[in-house]
């Protein structure tokens, strides 16, 4: 297992109404790295993650996670959707949402029990949300919502984590908590792939980076490929890192 790629994408093409959104994406991501996916709006970042997770049907190409198709590797995968993708006025509390992370392992009909609850509390502790466990989810700040989603993903006990814009609209405390968590996951040998929009923080947060704009522009270790040239190719305007607006 050690020499398997965490994620292999081969010639992945996704189209919406027969207009290409992702074009011929190839990537091989080794295990244990933290990778950011960057690119302009409409570059297909979210679509890439959704296609990998089988939420969007590709026109061509294949995805392998630890050498297996997604359906067979599901238990090794955790997903953190954009926090804006759900209705936070849903009548439930923090603990309940986090417990949803165990549903996949429980399978149909079976309900979470004591053991699952214990794990949920531990996950909440890790993201610094333990004291909010009985809080109604509509009363959370954006950052707290994000941490709830992270705790839920932690409960899946996965090997590879897909996160869609985890840093979007979060407060400083949450940002720190997420970074700490990312590093911790990294040190445990887990792989994290996150859609990211703040270019400035890429070198600080991630080991690897993928530049995406419908086609893959470049992918590799941050220190090798995070440069003006690739940024210009991706964003289509002359880019100089020092002048990147935050």
């Amino acid at each position: 297992m050690a020499n398997l790629y965490a994620l292999e994408v081969n010639d992945l093409t996704v189209a919406y109404r027969y207009k290409p959104v992702l074009w011929d994406i190839d990537m091989k991501i080794p295990q244990g790295i933290l990778m950011g996916i960057v690119g302009p709006n409409g570059a297909g970042k979210t679509t890439l993650i959704k296609a990998i997770l089988g939420l969007v049907q590709p026109v061509a190409g294949s995805v392998r996670i630890f050498g297996k198709p997604y359906k067979k590797a599901r238990s090794k995968v955790a997903y953190v959707p954009q926090k804006g993708s759900v209705d936070w006025d849903f009548p439930t509390n923090v603990l309940d949402v986090v417990l949803m992370g165990t549903y996949g392992k429980l399978g149909w009909i079976k309900r979470p029990g004591k053991e699952e609850k214990k794990q949920a509390l531990e996950a909440l502790e890790k993201v610094g949300m333990l004291e909010f466990r009985h809080r109604q989810i509509s009363e959370l700040s954006g950052g707290q919502q994000q941490r709830v989603f992270l705790a839920r993903a932690l409960l899946e006990n996965a090997e590879i984590y897909f996160m869609d814009e985890p840093f979007q609209g979060v407060d400083a405390i949450t940002e720190k908590a997420i970074i700490k968590l990312l590093k911790e996951l990294g040190s445990q040998g887990k792989t994290v792939i996150a859609v990211h929009h703040d270019l400035q923080s890429v070198p600080e947060y991630f080991d690897w980076v993928t530049f995406l704009n419908v086609k893959k522009v470049a992918a590799g270790p941050v220190k090798d490929i995070f440069n003006d040239d690739n940024l210009t190719k991706t964003y289509g305007i002359n880019f100089q890192l020092s002048e990147t607006p935050s």
């Binding site: 010639d11 093409t13 189209a15 109404r17 027969y18 074009w23 061509a60």
Partner: peptide
């Protein structure tokens, strides 16, 4: 849609 699908399939095929 069927027509677009075939034409699009051809396009992906050619580009590959």
């Amino acid at each position: 849609r069927k027509q677009q699908k075939l034409e699009f399939s051809m396009l992906t095929f050619l580009l590959h």
